[in-house]
Structures are given as C-alpha cells and as structure tokens.
Design a binder for these strands. Structure first.
Length: 226
DNA sequence: AGCTGATCATAC
DNA sequence: GTATGATCAGCT
C-alpha cells in the first residue's frame, strides 16, 4: 500500500533525493506502480528496464535517454540493483555506451564511465525470478562514491579496454577482459551495427558495445555499505 | 543509429 | 549454477 503520488519535480538537494529514496525502502514495486497508475508486468521478458523507470519516476529523475547523469544538478547517477535471497547482485550493471571511434583526447578523467560512476545512488530491489515483480521489495538506498582503490580498478580496466578499441582490437575484446569493468554488446538486436576501428586501422562495422560492472564489484559496494 | 532503462537465455 | 552474448522497449 502506498497513497501518495510521484513527485512532479526533481529533488532540489541531495537531502531531498535521499529522503525520497528512503521513503521507498520497504515498499513493493506493485505498491509504487499502483500509486502511479502503472500496470506491473508479470515478468520482465519484454520490459527489461521497467523497474529502473519506475524508480526514476518516484525519485523525480528527468526522463529521456541522454548520455548524462540522472540528476545532473546533484551529480548523481541512479542504478537499481537486483538482489538474490542472499543479497548478492543477480545481474551486472550497465554503465554507459562505449565509444568505438573518435577517441583521441579521451582520458579516464574526462570519460563517460568516470562521470557516471562519480556518485551513484544504488536502489537494491529483490530480483529473484520466482518473485512476481509486483511483490518485489525495495531495499535501503546506498549513496556511493568510488574509493581510491575502486577508482584505480575501474581506471585500469577502462584504459585497457579503450586501448584495445583504439588499436583496432575491438573484435578481440570479449566479456572476460577487465577485472571489474567489462565490455559487452549493447543493442536492440544482432543486426544493429556501428562504426569501429579494424585491425589495420580501417573503418569496420561491428555490434555496438556498452560498459558493464561485474557482479563482484557491485557486491563489494554493498558490503562496504554495511 | 545512438543511448537510456536493464534482464533474458543459452553455452559453459 | 553462472557468465557471456543477445535481446526488449522507448525516446531522440
């Protein structure tokens, strides 16, 4: 049960964002969907981003698909995190689209990955597939900033991946590359293609890729929060 | 086509 | 059981 309505404006401060997030903790996805007059799907097979969009709505994030943080004024990125019964992440976490061309001048410091991960508000949600989406409960929010050690791990992986992309080795990158950050396909389907750099420096067409955080890394974030 | 929100489903 | 590679929906 939940009787209020989604906010009509973005949070004006970090405190307001956190108090909105804390107010969701303990509620079910069905509660929030009902109160917003949204139909909860029976499963996420055809609506994989549904939970994230529902939480965005309730926190007052600006809708849309811009390559920027969810709360630009606060410098905060929002991520829902599906958890198992033992509170382990069930899925990797998408970070951002990977640039495969025109990467001269791109450094870790000005990268989209670093920008997105500078400050993240994690919203844990029960994610076991046997739990109907409507019954899945929201957990306590975690506001996270990478530690020096975490940022070093991320930067090292990012630099290795970007080096390979820039040197024409994108087709040799698979999801095993990177200790905490990995590169995987990111597209509507297998026929989507984008430009990349080939082995001999020529333009090639390849599947679009995205950066993802490994489960072990997000698990560490959860652990250090408790 | 690019990019957001992600989970699915098969190979291992 | 789990990670990789593939896929779904919506907006620009």
């Amino acid at each position: 049960m939940h009787s209020s309505s989604p906010p009509s404006s973005p949070p004006a401060s970090l405190n307001e964002l956190m108090s909105r997030a804390n107010a969701l903790s303990g509620l079910s996805l069905g509660d929030l969907a009902d109160a917003a007059n949204i139909v909860t799907p029976q499963n996420f097979r055809t609506q994989k981003g549904w939970t994230g969009q529902l939480i965005e709505l309730w926190l007052g994030a600006s809708a849309g698909s811009k390559p920027e943080q969810d709360f630009p004024e606060l410098g905060v990125e929002l991520k829902t995190l599906p958890l198992s019964y033992t509170n382990l992440p069930l899925e990797t976490t998408y970070v951002c689209y990977a640039p495969l061309t025109h990467n001269t001048g791109v450094t870790w410091q000005n990268s989209n990955v670093r920008n997105k991960l500078q400050k993240v508000l994690w919203l844990p949600v029960q994610g076991e597939r046997e739990i109907p989406p409507a019954q899945r409960l929201i957990g306590s929010p975690i506001l996270w900033q990478p530690s020096i050690e975490e940022e070093t791990l991320l930067r090292t992986d990012w630099e290795e991946l970007m080096d390979m992309i820039s040197l024409g080795q994108v087709e040799r990158i698979d999801a095993t590359v990177g200790s905490v950050l990995q590169l995987r396909p990111k597209a509507a389907n297998g026929s989507a293609l984008t430009e990349a750099i080939g082995e001999d420096g020529q333009a090639i067409q390849t599947r679009p890729r995205g950066f993802y955080l490994r489960k072990n890394f997000t698990q560490g974030i959860l652990q250090s929060a408790f």
